[in-house]
Nucleic acid binder design. Structure first.
Lengths: 222, 222
DNA sequence: TAAAAAAGAACGATCGTTCGTTTTATTATC
DNA sequence: GATAATAAAACGAACGATCGTTCTTTTTTA
């Protein structure tokens, strides 16, 4: 029975996925044609289609693998003992994300931007992504809990909101680094310390107000 | 000589651009066809093409107008007297961005994500965007300077880095709100205060170290 | 040798764009 | 002031290019 071995099959899939990554980040998700991927992979159309049923499947695989790659990368930081303080933590996470770029010429940040964009019209991709980021934010909540226990975050702080702020900082780094290219993890963490000054009484009362009211603002016409 | 008036011309352009916005955010930049835009604009193909030379032109116009719309929206906050404290400032900016969504069903955040993605392969768009965000960050630097003068940010902080951190938080909010949808300006600002605790001596030394070394980390295989 | 795997030419669908025609609105003429 | 002349503006069918995918043929391998 002439059937290819499981290792060979996995290798072929990886070969095609790598080609897809290369093309996607070079041209974008929609601008890369199947022919681009086929030629880059070194295989034929028939071969590629016998491993991935459609282009959408390939897009999903590319984004999913980048997400799980990110997960694997950041995981060690999340469970480090002792847990680094917030600034240090943000520094480590963003530096790790930035460092991924070096690896084989792939840029995790670019794939992330492409994925976010695509997720808005691709329901399956959106669900996958939502699940991933929600899970990641849960992990961040655990981190905040740990900070509370060790006293670096005060007990009164909202765990959910703090995790949201953390995630914003990390995601924002990805965007800014991808678009402007002149930010690094050190600058971000350093800039964060600049924002971290003790509350004045006026700020305290503003915080209390903030959670109750919704900002009503005149929105100018386009 | 039957020539349309300048107002009529501008109105037609606005009509087409509005149709493009609607389609782009519903289907994405590449998935919307010119026929989509043409039909929702209520005009003919020939008419649309006499106002915008190509689809790329329309994409650029859509993204550019969303950027300048954002600018106009945020500008009042930047020059407010007195300038709100950091948390309050972030709250106002993000609330304004979020509030834009309500306006006519257009979601500024979605267009932003689409634009970032497209900017990676469209050189003209990338240049436009870069210029916009750099200018915006300069404005943020001025804000940080003002904070320093009023004492809410300590003198030793780096203006550039603090502005980068600020921009990250804002951009991250846009991403998180667009993908997860369960964040609001209040949660973000509130979460930021949770991160804002006084330095311990250990953190101080970590900051000093951070700016000098580059993180060397083993990046696992995909 | 037999069946799975790879190849690659070919297909139908769809895209962005064009271009010959029709409509519309302004000006010149009587 | 009604009408004819005129040119911009709008129309929309049609085109060429290109896309994702299929399917028959050839090659490979257990």
């Amino acid at each position: 029975m002439p059937k290819i071995s499981d290792e060979k099959r996995a290798a072929r899939r990886a070969q095609i996925l790598a080609a897809a990554w290369t093309c996607f980040q070079k041209e974008g998700l929609h601008a890369t044609t199947m022919d681009d991927i086929i030629r880059t992979s070194g295989l034929s159309a028939g071969a590629v289609y016998s491993y991935y049923a459609s282009k959408d499947e390939l897009i999903l695989a590319a984004v999913t693998s980048s997400l799980s790659g990110l997960s694997a990368l950041v995981e060690p930081i999340l469970k480090a003992e002792p847990l680094p303080a917030p600034d240090q933590f943000v520094w480590q996470v963003t530096a790790t994300i930035a460092g991924f770029t070096a690896r084989g010429g792939y840029d995790l940040k670019r794939i992330a931007l492409l994925g976010w964009s695509e997720a808005q019209r691709n329901e399956r991709l959106r669900a996958t992504m939502r699940g991933f980021y929600l899970a990641f934010r849960s992990r961040l909540e655990e981190v905040v809990e740990a900070w509370k226990r060790s006293g670096v975050v005060e007990e009164a702080a909202s765990v959910q909101d703090t995790a949201k702020a953390l995630l914003s900082i990390i995601l924002g780094f990805v965007v800014q680094a991808a678009i402007l290219g002149d930010v690094d993890a050190g600058a971000l963490a350093n800039g964060l310390t600049g924002l971290r000054t003790p509350d004045t009484p006026a700020q305290k009362s503003a915080q209390a107000l903030r959670r109750q009211s919704t900002l009503k603002r005149a929105v100018p016409e386009l």
